[in-house]
Design a protein around this nucleic acid. Structure first.
Lengths: 209, 209
DNA sequence: ATCATTTGAGACATTTATGTCGCAAATGAT
DNA sequence: ATCATTTGCGACATAAATGTCTCAAATGAT
């Protein structure tokens, strides 16, 4: 039974999500084709990863479009912006789930991917800026920090899914709550802000499978 | 001029933070020694990475000790717990800065590292549980989600440092504020919670340098 | 049944990284 | 100055992954 290029792509994504360091031989086996056939579809491992990364960027763009990010920026309406933010976050969960390995794939530094990624992030930054102006997001946090925070929270999503820490259906709620309100009890002062001494790296849960 | 084992370690960390995929040859050059000399200190690349990962775990443990995590858990006092949380977060920034590549190093799945990491995370989980009981952290978020969130925020710290998105001195404040209060404007309802359609992966800024 | 197309198998070549080794050179100690 | 120790160099070996190629086998179309 012939396997289509798209089926190979789907299998490759799923396998790389499970084992980001998987070899071409591993991927071919997971896709149910031989290495020679994989090479007939993709000229190299690098070529395959380029295709996968572009697909992830496509989904990121789709999420922004479907959430109406640009319309929300133009409207400036708090309610519209809030909805756009929420929908974008929820859309990003799906993308994080489907393309989880891409979140930390070093191949993203390739210029053509870098450019697309920067452009998409630029749109998010515009949304965060509009949200700050509209009083939806607090204005005392740099928008680039907020963007990096969203990225970090997507990795939290990925970890939670991989380790079964959080039920899939709970993820939208906990992500939204954490992003908008944080983990602190409502009304609690934020942490004392005193810096601890040079100290321990964060959880080394990355890559756990 | 002879280079000590510790100097090699420091140079290796700095170089790997810059280029996580650096080869043994790259690391030797960065350390100012030959490959043969590097091999006299470390039996293999795997051995070197094991040493570096243990060092990162040492710092994570130090951060917990210095922040008085266990004492805070025992005391149950909201103020003590809040201070412990804050100090731990600040300590983790330093660790994230010094050992940033470890956050996404796949080598952490080695059993001996896995065990230490799980133990350290267990202590953090105990702190988050105590914090929820004391009313410092909201109780409606799973503690494992909170732990993953801290990990994700450390990656946000890493990205912000690598890209110069946030001034180093502002990181403790923005991390604390985001962790305890989120990015939403105070009093704003959290996002609508409606899931967007299957959509775009988060910023592919990982690995950007 | 026959022909055309696609695929798998596996041999082979290439590339890159790692690991080992011997010895001259450099460095350090006396 | 001499001796001991350490290091760098580079050749060599090993390993793993990737890429290429040929051809028989499998599959699909007629």
């Amino acid at each position: 039974m012939a396997v289509s290029r798209d089926q190979i792509i789907v299998a490759a994504i799923q396998h790389l999500n499970h084992d980001p360091a998987a070899s071409i031989a591993d991927i071919a086996e997971a896709a149910g084709v031989s290495r020679a056939t994989l090479h007939r579809h993709f000229t190299s491992r690098e070529d395959l990863l380029l295709v996968l990364n572009h697909r992830a960027l496509d989904l990121w763009k789709d999420a922004q479009v479907k959430a109406g990010v640009e319309e929300a920026v133009r409207s400036g309406e708090p309610a519209v912006i809030t909805t756009a933010l929420s929908e974008m976050l929820s859309g990003l969960i799906d993308a994080a789930e489907e393309y989880s390995f891409v979140l930390t794939d070093l191949g993203m530094s390739v210029p053509e991917l870098r450019e697309r990624s920067d452009e998409l992030e630029g749109r998010e930054l515009a949304l965060y800026q509009a949200a700050q102006r509209a009083g939806v997001l607090r204005a005392d946090l740099p928008v680039r920090w907020i963007s990096n925070t969203v990225y970090g929270l997507l990795l939290a999503v990925r970890e939670s899914l991989n380790r079964g820490d959080v039920a899939r259906r709970d993820l939208p709620r906990v992500l939204h709550e954490t992003f908008f309100r944080g983990a602190g009890e409502r009304g609690t002062q934020s942490g004392a802000g005193e810096r601890g001494p040079g100290s321990g790296g964060g959880p080394q849960s990355a890559g756990s499978a």
